[in-house]
């Protein structure tokens, strides 16, 4: 069981809800993967003026906790306003905070992120900041009141996997007790398994599932990879070594020098 801000989740898979071929395909992906959280974008998926009620109802009907996000927000003010709208619309104080720093790379704006996180935490939000693997920035976000971190694997929608293994490993080691979700950039399940093996607590995906030829099948593939990766982490894997090490005793041969 994994918990964020005191809420237990039934799965370590957080699944986005945009870009699916149809709402039915979206629902099938959730059912087949047993994803534990549904993320929704207020700005990008639907007009945030109450006219998207049909779609919102569908998200609520998935029966998993909803994590609204501020995707598409380029400034602190926009992100804070969107967070407030999301709280009202979904009745949750969870918010995945995205402050886009660059329109093309969608890289987070670290300065705006810390500022917005401070404002929202002070206002009672439970903030999930979408951040880089930078440890200093992570520290500032925790100081601002965040109790969860969402470092990127790679830029949003790229499918490149864990781009900076060293940086992510360092971040994990630097804050061993902070729940961390690898958010964005994953393309295939092996990358999600790798994140789990490294001790991350959950993974958030959207494009890799929604844009797959068969979204429901891919969602299940990710769910299984997460389970495999987490089991491996808990099983305490062996250390890699350079010299071959026979797994059966070798008798009657000269000992290697």
């Amino acid at each position: 069981m994994v918990a964020f801000y005191g809420t237990d989740l039934c799965s370590r898979l957080m699944l986005g809800t945009s870009q699916y071929p149809s709402p039915k395909a979206l629902e099938a992906a959730f059912v087949r993967s047993g994803a534990g959280v549904a993320t929704v974008s207020l700005r990008r998926e639907a007009a945030g003026d109450g006219t998207g009620q049909g779609f919102w109802q569908l998200i609520r009907d998935l029966g998993v906790p909803v994590l609204p996000n501020t995707a598409g927000c380029h400034s602190v003010k926009e992100a804070v306003t969107t967070a407030h709208m999301a709280r009202e619309m979904f009745g949750t104080d969870w918010i995945k905070l995205e402050v886009v720093g660059h329109a093309d790379t969608l890289q987070p704006d670290p300065f705006g992120l810390v500022e917005a996180a401070g404002i929202l935490c002070a206002d009672g939000f439970k903030v999930f900041p979408y951040t880089t693997e930078d440890g200093i920035l992570a520290g500032r976000l925790l100081e601002a009141g965040c109790e969860v971190l969402m470092p990127w694997g790679a830029p949003i929608g790229t499918g490149l996997g864990l781009n900076n293994i060293y940086g992510l490993r360092t971040l994990r080691a630097q804050f061993p007790d902070v729940p961390m979700v690898i958010d964005a950039g994953l393309g295939v399940p092996s990358q999600a398994a790798q994140a789990m093996e490294m001790g991350f607590d959950a993974v958030l995906l959207n494009t890799a599932v929604a844009k797959a030829g068969d979204p429901a099948k891919m969602a299940e593939a990710f769910a299984r990879a997460l389970e495999a990766g987490r089991l491996a982490y808990e099983a305490d894997p062996m250390e890699p070594r350079d010299m071959a090490h026979p797994s059966t005793p070798v008798l009657g041969l000269a000992v290697l020098s």
Partner: peptide, 8 residues
Amino acid sequence: QLEGDNRG
């Protein structure tokens, strides 16, 4: 293509 029936 945006979810919602906003016709504005």
